[in-house]
Nucleic acid binder design. Structure first.
Lengths: 225, 225
DNA sequence: TATCATCTTGACCGTCTGGTCAAGGGTTTC
DNA sequence: GAAACCCTTGACCAGACGGTCAAGATGATA
């Protein structure tokens, strides 16, 4: 109603052609991510995606030729976000700092991009028809290198002797749970989304249990990032 | 080829009518569970389920009138299994024993019935169209009562002061991860299923990290069930 | 063997799906 | 202003979908 320099669905005609194009593509990708997150590749329909993007179905095929193309592009966005979180682990060789940073980063991603995580979950449930080779290359390499780091920390006596792979899976499972199962979490929270305070409590509880679980004393006060 | 006293798809004609009927229904339910687990309700097709049960599609509709009926029955089976695991927590008031029993039970269920867990995951991803009222009643009641128990243990100084709800979510997320994401886990295990030894290591590592995480000293040797 | 209920199945139906297309509206360029 | 290009869209298509049905096969009963 009142003047606003930036609206979510701004009028494409007020922009240059390429800008408008990018915005429309983005709107379609966002709608696609939501629908794919909920119903998976097979369950999602182009009609649903078109409705959520508020565009005629034929328009989707003008920008993205097939449903599979659109799906692949949605999945690619998720890779980039996941890799960004991986960096927070790689950047540090101090167990407490590396683990708590990584957990917090993954928790924040689950909160900000729940649909990305859900699309990933659907991919795995469907035996990874699109991301299989990614699992076998990038993910496997990263995982193995992190397990080596964890094993080194163990041999240096900096963390307890636990199975590093299982620890990684616990962190992935728990952090992604806050995205993939957010509907269940909301239902068990009287139907409301988690408040900032509730989410912070969850985040710090996860950090605390994992750190304590691998034998690292609780973080000194005031050191949380 | 050679004589075999028990085959997986035994000849229905050698049994009484009601027995054969029950066997056919079971075969359809098993096939349905697999397909629903992979593709969710919308993504699954009756044709796929029929093919996996090795029956003509029309035969499915003789035993179960609609796709939704079949789906509801599959979901009901999962409820029963889940409640059975819940009992292992309820039966005991000793933190170490209750938590490790519950975690082990949930891990074993993830291994034996991965499809059930996957159907549940798909339900939540799709905003629980079928199990919503179950989440709001049985699950919520059980969750709250367990959180009360955890809080009592905290006030009695038997476990560390952590947020009980987050602890429960961590346990659910981690244990169900071994079912819902088993494809990813297998891929990261050179494409092989986890061996008994690998799965036991994972199970005991989860127990160990959680127990240590809530401030319970590692289990005395030889006490594992 | 004859009768009847139970089970099986290929063929079929209306609807929805992903994808196409041609006609037309807008915008840029000269 | 007109030609060229970009974008939008309703109408349409072939195939797949959930579900139906009637005809026949099979098994139980007597």
């Amino acid at each position: 109603m009142r003047e606003c320099s930036l609206t979510l669905t701004s009028d494409p005609h007020s922009k240059t052609r390429s800008t408008a194009r990018r915005e429309t593509e983005q709107r379609i990708l966002d709608a696609a991510e939501q629908v794919f997150a909920e119903f998976g590749f097979r369950g999602a329909t182009m009609g649903q995606i078109a409705a959520r993007a508020d565009l005629p179905k034929a328009n989707l095929h003008y920008y993205f030729d097939t449903k599979l193309t659109l799906y692949r592009l949605v999945v690619e966005r998720i890779f980039r976000i996941w890799l960004q979180a991986a960096d927070t682990f790689d950047d540090c060789d101090e167990p407490r700092e590396a683990l708590s940073r990584y957990i917090r980063a993954k928790m924040d991603i689950s909160r900000r991009f729940p649909n990305g995580s859900k699309v990933w979950a659907n991919e795995i449930l469907q035996q990874a028809p699109v991301i299989q080779d990614y699992l076998e290359t990038t993910l496997e390499d990263w995982t193995n290198s992190r397990i080596e780091v964890l094993n080194r920390w163990i041999s240096e006596g900096r963390i307890r002797a636990i199975d590093g792979r299982t620890l990684l899976y616990m962190i992935w499972a728990t952090t992604q749970h806050y995205a993939d199962f957010n509907h269940q979490i909301h239902t068990l929270n009287k139907g409301d989304m988690l408040s900032d305070a509730q989410f912070d409590l969850a985040k710090e509880t996860v950090v605390s249990i994992i750190l304590q679980g691998v034998g690292i004393a609780p973080e000194p006060m005031g050191e949380a990032s």
